[in-house]
Design a protein around this nucleic acid. Structure first.
Lengths: 205, 205, 205, 205
DNA sequence: CATGAATGAGACTTCATTCAT
DNA sequence: CATGAATGAAGTCTCATTCAT
C-alpha cells in the first residue's frame, strides 16, 4: 500500500475534471439539445471558465460523442445484467419510471432521441450507434437462447431473434412515449408493459 | 361561381410560397437538424432570397413549429384512415418501408425523433405534441371500440386503451429502429411486425 | 453600348467590395503584420462589419494569400516593363524612393519581408513565392540575353544568369535596408546603386 | 580565488535557465513566427512549465526582444572578426551555406526577415535594429579604411562608405534569397558571390 | 413583390499570464 | 524553485434578421 504518487493524484484530478465537464454537458444537452447548448453553457454548469474545458476535452464534437458513448454504454450495461431470475415486466416498468424521474444513472430518453436523429447526420455518431445496437441485440438474443438452467429463456434461435427485436422496439417506443407524454398515467403504462410481455413470452405459437 | 377575385389570387399565391418554404425547410431539417439548418440553407433550397422568407413566415421558430405541426398532422391523417378492412400488419410494414425510402408523403422518422426531443425544451412544441398524440390515441381507441360492422375492431374499452398505447409504442419503436439501423433486414422487420400484431390482436384473454 | 445589366452591376459591386477589403487588409498587414492584424481590424479599416467580410472572402488565410499574390504580381509587372532604354540605376533609385514614401502602387518592402518569412512556414505561400521568383528571374535573364537592338542587354546566357541573380539580391537587399533604416541618407543610397550597376554592367571580364 | 558564493550560484543558475528559454524560443520563432509561437510552445520546447518561464523573463515581448538582440549580436560578432587575411568571398559563401543548413550558431535568415518587418511596428525593436545596423556598418567602414598592414583594406573613406553599404545589401539580399528559394543551386550562388566581390573590391575607379 | 447586402450578437477556440500548491 | 490549473480577453467565423433598392 504505497501512498498515491503525485502523478497519480494529477491524473485523478484530470479524470475528475473531465467527469465534471461531461456531467455538466449531459445536463446542458438534455436541457437545450446538442446544438443549442454552448460550450459557455457547459463551462458555467461545470463551474469553470470556458477556456479550461479545452484542457480536458478536444472540442465540442468530442464532448457530444463522449456523452453519446456514455448513453450507449448505459443501455449495454443494463442488458448485460439480464438473467432468467429477473422479472422482465417489472424491470421494464422500473426503467420507465426511472426515465420519468430523470434518474441520471440510466439512459436519458430525450438524449436518446436526439442522438438517434443526430446519427443520421454525423457519420461517427451513426456508426457508434449501429455498432452498439447490434451488440446489444446480440446479447439479448444470446440470453434468450441460453437454457433456463443457466439463466436464459431457453428459446430457439429464430424465436429469439424476432423477440429480441420486438422487445427493443417496445422499450424504445416507451422511451418515445416518456419523452412526448411525460404526464401519461403510470398505471396505464404498467398495464401496457405487462400486456406486452404476456404476449411476447407466451409459449411460442 | 364568381371568378376568383384579385385578393383571393394574392392569398393563394402567398399560400403557394409558404408551401415552397416549408417543403424546403423540411428537407433542410431532415438533412441537418432544426438547429444546424440555417435560414440561408432553406432559402436556397426554396429557390428564393433569405429576405423573402420573412414575408411569409414570422421567424425560424415559426418554421420549425409549422414543420412539426405538419408532421403531427400526417400521423393523425394516417390514423383517421383506419378501418376494419385494413390489414394492420401489412399497413404497418408498408409504413416502415416508406420511412426507409424517405417517402416525403408521410412522417419522417428522423424528424419525428428530433421534434420529440425538442418538445421537452420548447413549451409550444411540447404542447402541440401532447395534444396531437392524445387525440391520435383517442381516435385509435374509438376505432378499436367501434363494432366490426361499422369498421372497427369491436374491443371493449379497457382492452382498447391498452392496445392503442401498445400499438403506438411499437410503431414509434419501429421508427426509432429505422433511424438507428437503416440497414436492418427488411424480412426480419416484417416478421417482427407480424409477430406483434398476432399477439396484439389475439382474442382478449 | 447597352446599359449595364443588373447582374453586371452586382458583380461589379462585389468586386469593388473585395478590393475595399483587400486594400484595408494590406494596410492592416503593413501596420501590424499578418498575424497581429485581426479580421475586426480589417473590417474597421474597410468601413464594414466583421460579418460582411465573409461574403467576399473565404477566410483570413485567403486574404493573406491574396495580398501576397498581389505583391508578387507587382514585382513581376515591374520586371516585365524592362527594356534597353531604361536607365537601370535611375529606375532602381526611383523604386527605393517609392518604397520609402510608402507608394501603395508598388510592392511594400515590409510586407515583402514578412511574406518571405511566412513562406518558410506556410506551404502554399512558399510555393507561390518560389514560382513567382523563378518566373521573375527567368524574365530578367531573357531580357539580359536579348540583343540590344530588340530592347535587351545582349549578354551571353552564363553572364546573364549570374547578373540576374545578383541584381535580384541587390534590389532585395535595398528593400531590407529600407525597412531597417528608413532614415538612411538618400544620397548615400543613390551612390551605392550607381556603384553597383557600374560594376554589374561593366564589360564582362 | 574565492569559492563561488551561494548567491553567485543562484545567479548562474538563473542565467542557465534563461538561456534554455531563449534557445527554445528561438527554435519556436523560426518554426512558427513571433506571433504564432505560443508561450506554451516555448515552455514545452524548453522542457519546463509555462509558469516557470515568467520567473526568468518579463513577458513574451521581452523574449522576442531578447531573441532579436541575440540575432543582432551574432551579426555584429561576425563583422568584428573581419581582417585583411580573410577571403571575403569564401567567407560569404560559407555564411550562406550555414544559413541553408540552419546552423544555430549564426543569425537565422527567416528570423532576420521577420524581425526586420517587426521593427517597423514595434518602436523598441526598430530602435535596436537601427542602432545595431549603424554600428555594424561603422565597423565595416573602419575595417575597410584601416591600412592593409593593420588588417584592413586600405580604402579611402568615401569608397569605404559606399562599399560597406553595398556589401550589406548584397549579404542581406542573399539572406532573402536563402529564405525564398532554399533550393537554389549552390554553385550558382557561389558564382554570384564571387562575381560581386570581384567587382566590389576591384581597384577603385 | 423580391433581392441580397449588411449588421451585430454569439458560437467555438486559443493563449498570455497568474497563482495556489 | 517549480508546476500546471485556471482565467478571461480576444480572435475567427456563422447566422437570424432587417432594410435600401
Amino acid at each position: 500500500m504505497t501512498a498515491p504518487s503525485m502523478a497519480t493524484a494529477k491524473v485523478r484530478r484530470a479524470e475528475v475534471q473531465r467527469e465534471r465537464i461531461l456531467a455538466a454537458a449531459k445536463q446542458c444537452f438534455i436541457e437545450r439539445g446538442f446544438h443549442a447548448a454552448s460550450m459557455a453553457n457547459i463551462a458555467e454548469a461545470a463551474g469553470m471558465s470556458p477556456g479550461l474545458i479545452y484542457r480536458y476535452v478536444e472540442n465540442k464534437s468530442a464532448v457530444v460523442l463522449a456523452i453519446i458513448e456514455e448513453q450507449l454504454e448505459k443501455v449495454r450495461a443494463d442488458i448485460a445484467a439480464l438473467d432468467s431470475d429477473c422479472d422482465l415486466p417489472e424491470r421494464t416498468i422500473a426503467r420507465v419510471n426511472q426515465w420519468r424521474d430523470a434518474d441520471p444513472g440510466i439512459m436519458n430518453p430525450a438524449l436518446f432521441l436526439e442522438m438517434s436523429a443526430e446519427g443520421t447526420r454525423d457519420a461517427s455518431i451513426g456508426a457508434a450507434i449501429r455498432v452498439s445496437d447490434r451488440q446489444t441485440r446480440a446479447e439479448v438474443i444470446a440470453w434468450m437462447c441460453r437454457p433456463k438452467a443457466t439463466g436464459g429463456l431457453g428459446l430457439d434461435r429464430e424465436a429469439a431473434v424476432a423477440r429480441a427485436l420486438l422487445m427493443q422496439c417496445i422499450i424504445e417506443g416507451l422511451a418515445v412515449r416518456t419523452v412526448r407524454e411525460p404526464d401519461l398515467d403510470r398505471n396505464e403504462v404498467e398495464r401496457v408493459v405487462r400486456l406486452f410481455f404476456d404476449c411476447l413470452l407466451a409459449p411460442t405459437r
